[in-house]
């Protein structure tokens, strides 16, 4: 077993793609660095924290983007974001599915306005691609999680794969604590952070579709499955998602503790969920969870 969480962006692509099938677009040798970090005396990275290109997955051509959470928290800057925007535009021209390997804290603050725009543009391109029936599959299990605008982009994907380590949220616990105090969200309480934002909770409420072990081979299998699932985004998809999200509010809206949500789902001994190994967790959760049934 080899950990997805511990792997770098490039290692994840290597593990995911068929051997020797990956071809990078605007690789580090081109040194397309951020034009804005120098203003803050911050070091640049030659790929600006994202690797994009073309590969084959189980023989099928795919476009792949992998964020590097170890460079500035995988945050979206101007160049970083534009590489993904371009990749999604190419997906439509080539009618080729896309895999997004999320590992991001959201917008890169030193170039916040460009990062915010990149996120809006990426969401638009995903909707356009999916309106053309092109799958855009998101994989979440990296160190930086998937926060801020990354969480909104994830919410636009046709299928989401997540591991227990894969945190998915908008506002990060630290930011909530800074703005609202530790009574609202104690970011030092790691167990609470994992319960609220972690992969198991997202899977149980229907916020993610496939739950996998923190293992590159498991992510690869799930990516292949994700590509075969329904991708189209149309009016009916959105009407179904509306129903799904209204239902969630009605069912869980009065709760603030994930364990109460899990208990309401009928999960046995909710207090043990965080400690369950993948197989045991799936055995307990698979048929009790809120399944999104492609309504996303």
């Amino acid at each position: 077993m080899s950990s997805w969480y511990e792997a770098s962006a490039r290692q994840r692509i290597d593990a995911l793609a068929d051997p020797d099938s990956f071809e990078e677009f605007i690789g580090p040798e081109e040194r397309e660095v951020s034009p804005h970090l120098a203003l803050f005396d911050l070091p640049e990275q030659f790929d600006d924290g994202i690797v994009v290109g073309r590969a084959r997955l189980s023989g099928q051509p795919v476009l792949v983007a992998a964020q590097e959470g170890r460079f500035m928290g995988g945050a979206f800057g101007e160049v970083h974001g534009a590489k993904l925007t371009g990749l999604l535009r190419a997906a439509r021209t080539l009618r080729c599915p896309v895999l997004i390997l999320f590992d991001t804290g959201g917008v890169r603050l030193q170039e916040a306005n460009a990062g915010e725009m990149a996120i809006a543009e990426i969401m638009r391109e995903i909707v356009l691609a999916r309106a053309d029936d092109i799958p855009v599959v998101g994989l979440i299990g990296g160190r930086a999680g998937c926060f801020g605008g990354g969480g909104l982009i994830a919410g636009c994907c046709s299928t989401l794969v997540i591991s227990e380590h894969g945190r998915l949220s908008v506002t990060g616990p630290e930011v909530i604590e800074t703005n609202r105090g530790a009574d609202e969200f104690d970011s030092k309480d790691r167990a609470l952070v994992w319960r609220v934002t972690g992969g198991k909770h997202r899977y149980l409420i229907g916020g993610a579709d496939l739950f996998v072990e923190d293992d590159v081979a498991a992510f690869r299998r799930a990516a292949i499955e994700g590509l075969s699932r329904r991708a189209a985004l149309d009016i009916l998809t959105l009407a179904d998602e509306q129903k799904r999200l209204e239902h969630r509010l009605k069912r869980f809206g009065a709760m603030t503790e994930p364990r109460d949500v899990w208990a309401a789902l009928g999960v046995l001994r909710p207090e043990t969920v965080s400690g369950l190994a993948t197989e045991a967790f799936l055995a307990e959760g698979l048929h009790k969870r809120e399944n999104a049934h492609d309504a996303r």
Binding site: V127, G155, C156, L168, V170, T171, R202, L245, E257
Partner: peptide
């Protein structure tokens, strides 16, 4: 966006993405 533990627990990312997707698709349609 509202910054509370409850909003995050309920999946605010999905609610915001859903609203954006609906508006974007309206523009396409």
């Amino acid at each position: 966006q509202r910054m509370t533990r409850r909003d995050e627990m309920l999946g605010l990312n999905e609610y915001l993405a859903h609203l954006a997707k609906t508006l974007i698709l309206a523009g396409i349609r």
